[in-house]
Design a protein around this nucleic acid. Structure first.
Length: 273
DNA sequence: CATTACCTGCAA
DNA sequence: TTGCAGGTAATG
């Protein structure tokens, strides 16, 4: 899926297209299991007439603030896409939710693999969601010291630990591999054994990898598009992800691929230790 | 910690 | 046909 940069770009591109618009109705909903909460019946009832006031992000959730304190939350998981389409465009078989907007356009939630989720939250529900995640890596609170504290005493490998959304919010398989390469840390290192200095490098590597990905409009491997339907370009700038066998850009050693905690991991065995 | 489940499509 | 894919939750 979309990781933090892709969700951030999805939110930024969606915002100007929906803010101030109201939801006139549900034009299509053919996979009710994607509505996590409330029940699909209640969701159908509450969503009509709601007005978009803001669009943001927390971890990998895209959050639409609606009137009356409601939040419409989307998780794109592996293959989800949110786009705004003209009234003449018909949804395809992978578009499972279509919301009508009062400017005649429609918001499409397309999701080939059907892992995506939608929630309509009241303020308490939103607070509960927020509490499930660690710090936002691009916010002021994400300091080297904060990251160090979160790695301390953890006997697990650094790579799966960084995928844990309670440790740092929004990282996924691509950007963890990229950040560990930039920080020259081997993905199988025990988290607690990462030194304070390495931790500082890792914190700054996470920030720069994510910042660059956002500047490049996110990474499009397969399904990801922004809310105008446009591809990201960051996949052209990967240093290690999906580049097994290609030369490391620092030392020319072929990039390795291995499986750590059931996920593909890419790294340079020469310059990451 | 690992395994399985959730889904579909694509490339080897 | 098999394995793999940007994620996460629920199991041993």
């Amino acid at each position: 899926m979309p990781e933090l940069p892709e969700v951030e770009i999805a939110a930024r591109s969606l915002a100007p297209q929906v803010i101030g618009r109201s939801i006139t109705g549900i034009a299509k909903l053919d996979w009710e299991r994607m509505i996590d909460t409330p029940s699909p019946a209640v969701f159908r009832e509450l969503i009509v007439g709601r007005r978009f006031e803001a669009v943001g992000r927390r971890a990998k959730w895209l959050l639409c603030s609606l009137d009356a304190g409601w939040t419409l939350a989307f998780h794109l998981r592996m293959s989800g896409n949110l786009t705004v389409q003209e009234s003449s465009i018909e949804p395809n078989i992978h578009t499972h939710l279509v919301l009508g907007l009062n400017d005649g356009r429609r918001l499409f939630f397309e999701d080939q693999r059907k892992f995506g989720r939608v929630m309509l939250l009241d303020p308490a529900g939103l607070a509960e969601l927020d509490a499930r995640f660690g710090p936002e890596p691009l916010a002021a609170g994400f300091t080297p010291e904060e990251l160090c504290r979160r790695l301390a005493n953890r006997r697990t490998k650094i790579k799966p630990l960084l995928l844990d959304q309670q440790v740092v919010a929004g990282l996924g398989n691509i950007y963890v591999s990229e950040a560990l390469w930039l920080a020259k840390i081997h993905p199988e290192r025990i988290a607690a054994e990462v030194s304070a200095e390495e931790c500082r490098h890792l914190q700054s590597a996470i920030v720069s990898v994510l910042t660059r990905a956002i500047a490049n409009q996110g990474s499009t491997l397969r399904n990801y598009r922004n809310s105008y339907g446009e591809n990201g370009r960051n996949q052209e700038h990967f240093s290690v992800y999906a580049r097994a066998g290609e030369p490391c850009e620092r030392c020319a050693t072929p990039i390795s691929r291995t499986v750590i905690a059931q996920r593909s991991s890419f790294f340079c065995e020469q310059c990451q230790s």
